[in-house]
Design a binder for these strands. Sequence first.
DNA 1: TTCTAGTATAATAAGAATATGACAAGTGTG
DNA 2: CACACTTGTCATATTCTTATTATACTAGAA
Lengths: 220, 220
Amino acid sequence: MIKILLVEDDDTIAFGIRSALKRTGFEVMSCMSMTEGRKMFSEDISLVLLDLNLPDGSGYEFCRWVKERRDTPIIFLTVLDDVADITKGLDMGADDYITKPFSIPVLESRIRAVIRRISKTEEDILSCSTIQMDKKRIKVSVCKEAISLTSLEYRLLLILMENKGCILPRSLILKKLWDDESNFVNDNTLTVAMKRLREKLKDAPCIKTVRGIGYRMEDI
Amino acid sequence: MIKILLVEDDDTIAFGIRSALKRTGFEVMSCMSMTEGRKMFSEDISLVLLDLNLPDGSGYEFCRWVKERRDTPIIFLTVLDDVADITKGLDMGADDYITKPFSIPVLESRIRAVIRRISKTEEDILSCSTIQMDKKRIKVSVCKEAISLTSLEYRLLLILMENKGCILPRSLILKKLWDDESNFVNDNTLTVAMKRLREKLKDAPCIKTVRGIGYRMEDI
DNA sequence: TTCTAGTATAATAAGAATATGACAAGTGTG
DNA sequence: CACACTTGTCATATTCTTATTATACTAGAA
């Protein structure tokens, strides 16, 4: 099931999109402000439909916020046909935009196009030696035995597995996990989180420490 | 250099796009029909800009022809604002489309967005004889076998490989690696670091000592 | 050849980076 | 409220990089 997050403050438009997309078979979560959007955003959202004008800030802001965290595709919904605005949005990492008013078939077509682009590279089940991660179900198993991870542990593991083979600098992980524009956590917090994750993974030797840089996940 | 293939039969439009994109720094090959397009298409083309109405067939046909061969991204240029047409193009695998008339900044922005999407998966790899260095993953391999370097060793190798062929004076390397505006290290520290790096590179003879000056990295 | 500055090597030690264990604050649940 | 659970922080232990020291080697000049 493809989950779509709709951030749109116009109730009528939101309702129309929501019902049409649900009929087509998408799962739609919708909200009316950036603040709510931040709360509702999660890893299992496949795509964000984003209004440019939000009551509590510009859609650009939300776009940046999302792209700093994940590479979730974003389609802007905008009444502005302004060249500068469209350019800005796309350069910021948005994947597409649609000018209101638009027809539902066009919207759906665009959504499919964007989804297709990412689904080419994306895999729902990540694995690394004995560790398997089902992104859809948010489930992790070690040696085919399910283990239960906390939210933090899951997100940490996800970052590692999605970048299997790469060294992830501590600073990058810290940013991805804790940079809520306010929260500075102790540098050691990551170390502790990593220790806890490793424990739950039964100290499988996949997560290597790269002293002075960060961590790397690798097969065997 | 990013190569773009433009298939557009309207001379005026083609000229405008060509000159604008060239100014921006793209390499543009252009042609006016599908037949020519097929001849000019090759692997090193990063993106196709494709008019919907071609003298010898519909752009859709060319789109399908391309997608059957490679996954080169395609952006449609179209005067039609027709819902059905847009939908058809995107569902056929096109990556984006722009409705004429469009402004050059918008076009460039779209191009960049599409390019960015594919270049994400591309890697920048430095290599010198059997040594390969993946800057993105912070990974080094010798004879296709991964080796693990410490932070210092990695930075040292990076300096050498980024200046392959040049003699790097000891003083310069010292400065680059240790000049924290405070820290002066023993001159021999570099020598020792170099020895350890060479060891890990299995004493591949790429790093030459230039007595009295410094070191040079070179192929074979 | 001999001498010497420049470089290599080996071994050691200092200290930074990371791991660990324990505790506390916060949250949600019955 | 008691309880379980998550997560951040502190204090301490451990590990590993890397700077240094001491010594050996080497190329090139005299």
